[in-house]
Amino acid sequence: NTFVIVLARVVGGIIDSALSGNREGGGRGFAYYIIVFVLEMVFGLFATMIAMWFSRHREFRADHGGASLAGRQKMIAALERLKLNHGQSTLPTQIAAFGIAGSAAKKLFLSHPPLDERIAALRSSTVA
């Protein structure tokens, strides 16, 4: 978060200076604060996507480590068992329409990869 805030303020200052033509007075105008706010939102989204990518990568590594300890087939069986209960919606039927549909953009914000991908990665690995 600190990196996002600092980067947004630096880039915001550069953009504000370029748009204002380096006006005198040295104060930050209203446009600067709007630019910084928008940049914080955009940079925050990118930071979240990066953090979630690391989380998904870490999950694949954890599966690989579990497979090396317990055996690949046991780990696959455990993930398949988890998958039996995972696919069912927990939203009440009255608000189920407000659930996020599966989309490519949604995958960027997932902290865990889909179970099918995890199982496929284990099946294609060379862990005993």
Rank of each mutant, 00 (worst) to 15 (best):
I35Q: 03
Q94K: 03
A120L: 12
F43A: 10
Y33T: 12
S55L: 12
A67G: 01
K83W: 04
F46T: 11
D63V: 00
A77F: 02
A47T: 07
A120C: 02
Q94A: 07
E40C: 12
E40G: 06
P114G: 11
P114F: 02
F37C: 10
R28A: 08
L39M: 07
N1E: 14
Y33E: 12
L45C: 09
S68Y: 00
I14T: 09
G27C: 04
Y32V: 04
I34N: 05
A47Q: 08
R23H: 03
S55H: 10
F30K: 05
A101H: 10
G66N: 15
T48F: 09
K107D: 09
I100Y: 08
P113G: 10
M41K: 10
L45A: 11
A121F: 13
R58C: 01
Y32Q: 06
E117F: 07
V38I: 15
P113K: 13
L79S: 00
K83A: 15
E80Q: 13
R61M: 02
R72F: 01
F37A: 13
L122V: 02
Y32F: 15
A128W: 04
A104I: 04
I34E: 03
L91I: 03
K83N: 15
A97G: 09
S124D: 14
I95Y: 13
V42I: 14
Y33S: 09
L69T: 08
D63W: 00
F98S: 13
T90G: 03
R28N: 07
G26C: 01
A8V: 07
V36W: 01
G71Y: 08
P113F: 11
R9G: 06
H86C: 04
T2N: 10
M52L: 04
A78L: 11
R28F: 12
A97P: 01
D116E: 15
Q94I: 08
T126S: 11
S124A: 14
G66F: 10
R9S: 14
R58L: 04
G102T: 06
A8P: 07
E59L: 03
A31V: 09
Q73D: 13
E117A: 13
V11E: 04
Q94H: 08
G13I: 06
A120T: 11
R72N: 10
I5H: 13
T48A: 14
S89G: 07
L110F: 15
G44S: 06
A104F: 08
L91C: 07
I5T: 12
V42C: 02
G65F: 02
S68K: 11
H64V: 02
